[in-house]
């Protein structure tokens, strides 16, 4: 856990000790550790001279700043109407079957977390998913497993 504190220190040095830095620092921790642990939030609070409740309160507002344990790779499948119309449910089923988890869960080996997301901005090319920051539009149920395997 000392690593987390070091990471926070680096991020705070990079972005500066002020409230405006809070989101970039939180984002930086999520990028490395995939979620915000209590240790991370307490370290951030200390470094930015905020209360840890304030840090948690801010982080928990944002869906990309998870405060619960997340796997190494986060899959976000767009659940908005046009992706539904283009067959996103089939994609979810294939992934659930392959990863042996339900939407919202993390695989036992901690490799993947699968989440539903609101409109990802690819309505003309649905269904679409994000794996971490990478985007995969026009998903085909037969190809989706292959995509996921790249992250194993």
């Amino acid at each position: 856990m000392a690593n987390t504190e070091k990471l926070v220190e680096q991020l705070v040095t990079k972005h500066g000790v002020c409230r405006n830095s809070l989101l970039p620092v939180l984002q930086g921790v999520v990028k490395e550790e995939h979620f915000l642990s209590d240790v991370a939030m307490i370290a951030i609070a200390k470094a930015l001279d905020l209360s840890s409740a304030d840090v948690y309160g801010t982080a928990s507002f944002y869906s990309f700043l998870d405060t619960e344990f997340r796997g190494e790779n986060i899959i976000r499948i767009c659940k908005t109407i046009t992706c539904k119309m283009k067959g996103k449910q089939k994609i979810v089923e294939v992934l659930e079957d392959h990863l042996k988890i339900k939407e919202g869960e993390t695989t036992r080996n901690g490799k993947f977390t699968m989440l539903a997301a609101n409109c990802l901005g690819w309505c003309h090319k649905g269904p679409v998913m994000l794996v971490n920051d990478d985007v995969y539009p026009e998903l085909d149920p037969e190809e989706v497993v292959e995509i996921i395997e790249k992250y194993c």
Binding site: C18, R19, N20, L23, P24, T58, F61, S63
Partner: peptide, 23 residues
């Protein structure tokens, strides 16, 4: 500056709040 998955931050004053490190 990057957002973090909140639709409401497209509302201009919510966007400022977000950039200022708030909900």
């Amino acid at each position: 500056r990057s957002g973090s998955g909140a639709y409401i931050c497209g509302e201009e004053t919510a966007l400022f709040e977000s950039m200022e490190g708030m909900r």
